[in-house]
């Protein structure tokens, strides 16, 4: 991405893949990111990995944040990473949050998920991480 001009505003897709209908966490993080100056595209509930990747391309986001509370993170998160790579968009990074057991975090990162934020993480920590990770895309 080094040849790309640096954008003025970072754009983040907050997605809710899978079947759970609990989007409080997604909305809290979307709100916190907006208040930190990000443009947040919110997908709504029940998205498939294909839908989220398609949205990410149309919206030209820097990253996709996935909120999953259904337990399907081990399937859905790596699938989105894989689909992004298949579209030649592997530079769009994926991070996640929700109910993710400690033991799953290592394998998810190995599968290409950049960061996992578990319940209780202060939103300031997420914001700081994203600012740096987004800026790094244009170094």
């Amino acid at each position: 991405m080094s040849q790309e001009p640096k954008p003025r505003t970072y754009r983040v897709l907050i997605g809710k893949p899978g079947l759970d209908g609990h989007d409080r966490g997604a909305k809290v993080i979307a709100r916190a990111l907006r208040d930190a100056g990000f443009e947040v595209i919110y997908s709504g509930l029940h998205q498939t990995p294909e839908m989220l990747v398609r949205i990410a391309l149309q919206e030209d986001v820097d990253c996709i944040g996935l909120s999953i509370l259904s337990g399907a993170h081990n399937t859905l998160m790596p699938e989105i990473v894989r689909l992004l790579e298949a579209e030649g968009a592997g530079d769009i990074f994926v991070f996640g949050g929700g109910i993710i057991p400690e033991n799953d975090i290592g394998p998810l990162k190995e599968a290409g998920v950049r960061a996992i934020f578990t319940p209780g993480t202060p939103t300031t920590e997420v914001i700081e991480y994203l600012r740096e990770a987004c800026a790094n895309r244009y170094q």
Binding site: F38, E39, Y42, H46, I55
Partner: peptide, 21 residues
């Protein structure tokens, strides 16, 4: 856009999900 932070939540797509694919 939020006049306070310059950020925004863009949520119009929530109602247009059926056309994503």
């Amino acid at each position: 856009t939020s006049p306070f932070s310059g950020g925004a939540i863009l949520g119009d797509r929530v109602r247009m999900q059926q056309h994503s694919l």
